[in-house]
Design a binder for these strands. Structure first.
Lengths: 197, 197
DNA sequence: TATCTAGTTTGATGAACATCTAATTAAATA
DNA sequence: TATTTAATTAGATGTTCATCAAACTAGATA
């Protein structure tokens, strides 16, 4: 459990990495270990004795804390002595929780845009009008294609049955889906392609 | 999932509560939710759409975030609109991780002391000498008694067999254990009393 | 009032995790 | 070299958790 050691967590890092840090902190025993190590560096066996935990379990916890860069280990004699490491803990919580704007924001505005488009064109699950702009049409199609089960085939009639729930102009929708590559047609049989994301 | 709402997390709070906060933060989806809500208050359905998650799942996540006081909800029309709440995120990480000294420290020094005593008097599992100070003798006895199985009876001879592994002066050890109430003797039969912790 | 929409709760399922015991590795001493 | 001690790894087990579908609750509108 030592290979992935000590990435310093730059502000640019992704949500998974940030969540890993919090997961490492999200256990009472590990918080206690940090408190104990803060007082003075300690080795696993000592911690096991104090915490009344199996040595293997303590090793497990220490591994997690070291993995996210909260602890560093130094080997002396038998012992693997752990100490607090890095300035990670001096950061305000918000610095770890919130992504720097370019990162999430872009992603989010993207989503927000999708939302806005869908909200504009759908009403009560029906497609009120077919978007004239290609980009918006794409968003609508990506939404509609999710009504088709992956791993299943549809006759053209079945495709139409799905589409008519959205809009009467099933021909335009069907052609759009195929043109966008969201449905494939082979021998008059339709099938949904790669999952939406 | 709304009953346990919004405890402000005083610095005096215990490790479990602190761990709960970190657990709530220890999931990428919940971090994303916080980032999204930071931009503007949002309701569950919107988040479900953006995150491409089931509404029930989003509700679950929002519940956890609200439970530890990171979000607050306000009801408007249909919607339950969530916003960031409290100054929790402005705290430096260390303020949440580290207990105020009186709490852990006392507990810990206690343990550290035990450790030191045991290390002083035991060598390779044997008791090198019998402590003259009562307090230290107690610590040693509490350690030794763990070699006795609870829920089992021992003859005096069996007791001695266990004790001689620690030190040849079995009589002193045996008497000490009984005096300390760690072993009880009834009709020449010994039995361990309440579990160590 | 009947219907629609958003939210929550419940139950089921699979994944992740904490913990232990046992086996293994590695360092230190007899 | 053989034994002891600390640490890690592997395997097993029970618990917690994330997720979804379905049932249910409660505003809002027709």
């Amino acid at each position: 459990m030592n290979e992935a050691a000590t990435q310093p967590l730059t502000p640019e890092q992704n949500l998974e990495a940030r969540a890993e840090l919090f997961k490492a902190l999200g256990h009472p025993m590990r918080l206690l270990i940090l408190n104990l190590v803060k007082m003075k560096p300690r080795h696993g066996e000592e911690l096991a004795a104090i915490l009344n935990l199996n040595a293997a379990t303590v090793s497990h916890h220490l591994g997690k804390l070291a993995e996210v860069g909260l602890l560093t280990a130094e080997k002396t004699q038998y012992y693997q002595v752990y100490s607090l490491s890095g300035a990670l803990l001096d950061k305000p919580l918000r610095d770890v929780v919130f992504m720097p704007q370019p990162g999430v924001a872009a992603q989010v505005e993207e989503d927000a845009y999708r939302q806005k488009v869908l909200k504009t064109f759908f009403k009560y699950g029906r497609l009120k009008a077919i978007p004239a702009q290609l980009k918006k049409f794409m968003i609508v199609l990506e939404h509609i294609v999710q009504e088709f089960e992956p791993e299943r085939t549809y006759t053209e009639r079945e495709v139409n049955q799905v589409l008519v729930e959205f809009n009467d102009d099933v021909a335009t929708l069907r052609r759009g889906l195929v043109d966008a590559g969201l449905l494939v047609r082979e021998n008059s049989i339709y099938r949904r392609t790669a999952p939406a994301e």
